[in-house]
Design a protein around this nucleic acid. Structure first.
Lengths: 122, 122
DNA sequence: TGTGTACTCGCAAATGATTTGCGTATTTTT
DNA sequence: AAAAATACGCAAATCATTTGCGAGTACACA
């Protein structure tokens, strides 16, 4: 199945990818249709094997669903995403649960700014 | 100008609104076109008078750009957003800046889960 | 081996929020 | 009031993503 090829791309990537990036990558090896990529991606997300995050640019990014928590620093200039593991949010999440009764299943966090590289080039 | 009507709706709202919600609200008073709403909204965002946040549902939400920090708890069931002021992120942002050189201009945070009300109805 | 059932895919068309081109009002400037 | 600048409506365009449908493929069981 082509699903395996698609899943492999995600598994072998260190950062999150768009559907198109995955499509381009898979296409180098096998013949596949973009809609198949999207369909497969949705399957993987439903099975909790892959995590989908919609960024401020309205494009969905996919990455392997692992328990370790990752967030991204996104440069407003080059639009690159730099992963960071700094996140104290579990603590905050617990606090929210305690104080509001809202049971939290997940969260997304996005930092925006200018990366050092772009700052130098400016 | 219709801009004032649109801005007023945002000013008078306690929570963030979609372009369509704003359009519906403004339409009750004056005749306006949806594209005008979008155009005006973009103007206001450019002037830093309004903040635009794209949520995981890919819909943009607009709210008055004030310095006070707000984040939302979004229920996966009813899709309502509950504002919370709990946010230790400034501390984290400073830490990131110090350790990575990434100068952070802003961030978005979204908690997902089930609100108490929906939990009861389940 | 035959056939039924369930997936898997490709292709083209649909979706839905948002944007844009363009021509016409309306406001602002001089 | 004429000229220059904006604001606006309308219809068509965008663009990532979804969906309907029909054809191909796989697996089960008799």
């Amino acid at each position: 199945m082509k699903k395996d090829f698609i899943f492999d791309v995600i598994k072998n990537s260190t950062n999150s990818l768009t559907a198109e990036e995955i499509y381009n990558d898979v296409s180098q090896n096998i013949d596949v249709n973009l809609s198949t990529v999207y369909r497969t991606l949705n399957n993987l997300v439903d099975k909790n094997l892959v995590t989908k995050v919609v960024r401020q640019d309205k494009i969905a990014y996919y990455e392997l669903a692992n328990d370790e928590h990752k967030h991204y620093l996104i440069c407003d200039k080059c639009n690159n995403a730099y992963p960071t593991d700094m996140c104290d949010l579990d603590k905050i999440a617990r606090k929210i649960k305690r104080e509001t009764g809202f049971s939290i299943t997940g969260h997304t966090l996005e930092f925006h700014g200018i990366c050092p590289e772009c700052r130098e080039n400016a």
